[in-house]
C-alpha cells in the first residue's frame, strides 16, 4: 500500500509537470500580451513593462524560470491586481470556494445516496419514478441556470436568502444548493444501479434466508456493498462542482477562486490563468489520489491485496 501511494505521488508530480508545460507553451502561443491593447503605452514603456515581467527573455528561459518558480511554490505574478503573486490571490480566495465546494459535495453525496437507495429498494414503484425524475433534473439542469433561478426566487422575490453577499453561513446556502444538484443526480443514479445490482446478488438471497427482515438485509448487507463503488465517482463529481463553481461564484458574487478564474479570462491575465490552471489540476489530482486510497481502505478485497491466504 505504501509503495502504491508513493508511486501515485510520483505520477502526480509527473502529471503536474506535463500540465504546467502544456499550459506554459499554450500561453506563449497567444498573440501579443495583455499590454498590447493598452494604446497609451509607448514602445519604451512597453519595453520596461515587459522587462519587469521577464517577457523580454527567450521563451525557453522564461519556461525554465517558470518551472523553477513552480518548484519553489511560486505560481507567478498577476498582470492585474497590483502585481500580486498568484499564490497570494489563491490564498485570499481559497476559503469561500472550499466552503461551498465541500458543502455542495457533502449535500450532493449524502442526498444522492439516500435518493438512490430509496429508488433501488422501492424499485419500479412511484418512489423509484420520483427519485429517478429528481436525479435526472439534477443531472440535466446546468448549475448556472439553477443558480439564477434560485437567486431570483429565493433571494430576490421572496427575500429568504441574501441575493449576493458573502459573510455568513446563510449566504452560502443558495450557492451550495445550486452546486449540489449535479452531484446529487449523479450519485443517486449510480447508487440506484449499484444497489439494484447488489440486491439481486446471491449473498443478499443468503442474507434473506438467514431470516433478516427486508430492512435488515438493506441495512446490514446491501447498503455497504453498494456504497463502496460510489466512492469511485467522487473524483469526477469534484470536477463538476469545480466547473459549476466558476459561474455560480460569479452569479452570487462570491470572492472565490472560480470567480477569479473567470475574471482573469476576461481580462487576459495570463499568469493568473496559468497559475490557477495548475492549482486546479493539483487539487483534482489530489482528490483522485485520496479517493483511490480511500477505496482501497474500505474495500476489504483491495485492502488485503489480491488473492487470498490459501
Amino acid at each position: 500500500m505504501a509503495k502504491y501511494i508513493l508511486k501515485r505521488i510520483l505520477y502526480l508530480f509527473l502529471t503536474l509537470f506535463i500540465i504546467a508545460t502544456i499550459t506554459f507553451f499554450m500561453m506563449k502561443m497567444l498573440p501579443g500580451t495583455p499590454f498590447s491593447n493598452q494604446n497609451r503605452m509607448s514602445a519604451e514603456q512597453l519595453k520596461i513593462v515587459k522587462a519587469q515581467y521577464g517577457l523580454d527573455q527567450s521563451v525557453f528561459v522564461q519556461y525554465i524560470r517558470y518551472i523553477g518558480g513552480l518548484l519553489q511554490g511560486n505560481l507567478g505574478t498577476s498582470f492585474q491586481f497590483n502585481n500580486e503573486p498568484v499564490t497570494a490571490l489563491i490564498g485570499q480566495r481559497l476559503a469561500p470556494s472550499m466552503q461551498i465546494g465541500a458543502q455542495a459535495m457533502v449535500v450532493g453525496t449524502i442526498g444522492g445516496i439516500l435518493l438512490g437507495a430509496l429508488a433501488a429498494i422501492r424499485k419500479n414503484t412511484w418512489v423509484d419514478t420520483l427519485a429517478t425524475f429528481i436525479s435526472i433534473l439534477g443531472l440535466s439542469i446546468p448549475s448556472f441556470v439553477l443558480a439564477v433561478l434560485l437567486q431570483f426566487y429565493l433571494a430576490y422575490k421572496w427575500k429568504i436568502y441574501p441575493v449576493a453577499l458573502w459573510d455568513n453561513f446563510q449566504s452560502s446556502i443558495l450557492p451550495t444548493l445550486a452546486l449540489s444538484a449535479l452531484p446529487l443526480g449523479t450519485v443517486a443514479r449510480f447508487m440506484r444501479t449499484e444497489m439494484v445490482d447488489v440486491m439481486s446478488s446471491d449473498y443478499i438471497e443468503l442474507a434473506k434466508s438467514k431470516g433478516n427482515s427486508s430492512w435488515g438485509v438493506v441495512a446490514k448487507h446491501a447498503l455497504r456493498n453498494s456504497l463502496i463503488p460510489v466512492v469511485t465517482i467522487i473524483g469526477p463529481m469534484a470536477v463538476s462542482v469545480m466547473t459549476g463553481s466558476m459561474v455560480v461564484e460569479n452569479i452570487f458574487s462570491i470572492p472565490g477562486i472560480g470567480e477569479q478564474f473567470v475574471k482573469s479570462i476576461t481580462t487576459n491575465d495570463y499568469p493568473t490563468i496559468m497559475g490557477l490552471t495548475i492549482f486546479y489540476s493539483f487539487l483534482l489530482i489530489i482528490v483522485y489520489l485520496i479517493v483511490d486510497i480511500l477505496y482501497g481502505l474500505i474495500d476489504p478485497r483491495i485492502r488485503l491485496g489480491n488473492g487470498g491466504k490459501e
Binding site: T15, I22, M26, M242, I265, S281, L284
Partner: peptide, 13 residues
C-alpha cells in the same frame, strides 16, 4: 487527468 474544463478554457483562450 487534466480537468477537461481547463483544457477547454485554455483552448478557447
Amino acid at each position: 487527468s487534466i480537468p477537461n474544463l481547463i483544457v477547454v478554457i485554455l483552448m478557447m483562450i
